[in-house]
């Protein structure tokens, strides 16, 4: 292990990690928004939109992010939709994550039995109140584990961005291996930086999971 090398190239990794985190955060925020909308469309059975959402979810869940990125980055410009690599990465992550988040929210909503909403209505609550005070709190609690797993999954998926020449952690590591042949040091830094990004998320995630595990008592 050559520590001089590690110290010298640490800043490169820092920049790359910031890019990974930045794209990851924007992509995840967008996928939560997309997922929320899709889950709402499915839950309220909005006609037409519902079919579109179902097709979107199936396509997005059954194709790899790498291929989606290739399609967005290399194929779409051919029909006149050209975007920067960063924007492609964000859109790709949101496209993939949207369906995973939608499934997480939907399964949470579906897990709340209809009798809960019906009881709320019979107690004189309005539909919006029943949703706000009875259905959503339970649905959120049930979907938290899947939600946390999705966030970690999406952060991990950002590692393929180097394929569309974004200078992320993978790109930096590969570049350094190619230039200086310092394989061990480059990969060591890579692992350390991914641990720095992912471990806190994982630990925080399981903490939140424990705190929000209040729905579905008795089972």
């Amino acid at each position: 292990m050559n520590w001089d090398f590690i110290l010298k190239y640490l800043p490169l990794y820092e920049t790359a990690a910031l890019l990974t985190v930045k794209i990851g955060l924007i992509g995840i925020a967008l996928s939560i928004a997309v997922g929320f909308l899709c889950a709402a469309v499915l839950y309220f059975k909005v006609p037409v939109l519902r079919q579109i959402v179902i097709v979107y979810i199936e396509v997005s869940r059954n194709t790899p992010l790498l291929i989606q990125l290739f399609f967005i980055y290399y194929a779409l410009p051919k029909v006149g939709i050209g975007m920067s690599a960063q924007l492609c990465g964000i859109i790709g992550l949101a496209f993939l994550g949207g369906s995973y988040m939608a499934e997480a929210f939907r399964s949470g909503l579906e897990a709340v039995e209809p009798i809960q909403a019906e009881s709320a209505l019979s107690l004189g609550m309005q539909r919006s109140q029943a949703l706000r005070y009875v259905v959503l709190p339970q649905a959120v609690s049930i979907s938290v584990p899947a939600f946390v797993a999705n966030i970690i999954f999406l952060l991990k998926e950002t590692s393929v961005f180097s394929a569309i020449s974004l200078m992320d952690l993978m790109f930096t590591a590969k570049d350094l291996i190619g230039q200086y042949y310092k394989t061990t040091e480059s990969l060591f830094l890579l692992v350390v930086f991914y641990l720095i990004i992912l471990l806190p998320v994982s630990i925080l995630g399981s903490y939140v999971e424990r705190r929000l595990r209040y729905a579905g008592f008795g089972s």
Partner: peptide, 23 residues
């Protein structure tokens, strides 16, 4: 379990493909 699941699969591929061949 934690290490394998927290590392992106691409990182694992790099470790095995580039690093194990050297070490």
């Amino acid at each position: 379990l934690e290490f394998i699941r927290i590392m992106p699969q691409l990182v694992l591929l790099f470790i095995v493909f580039f690093s194990s061949t050297r070490t």
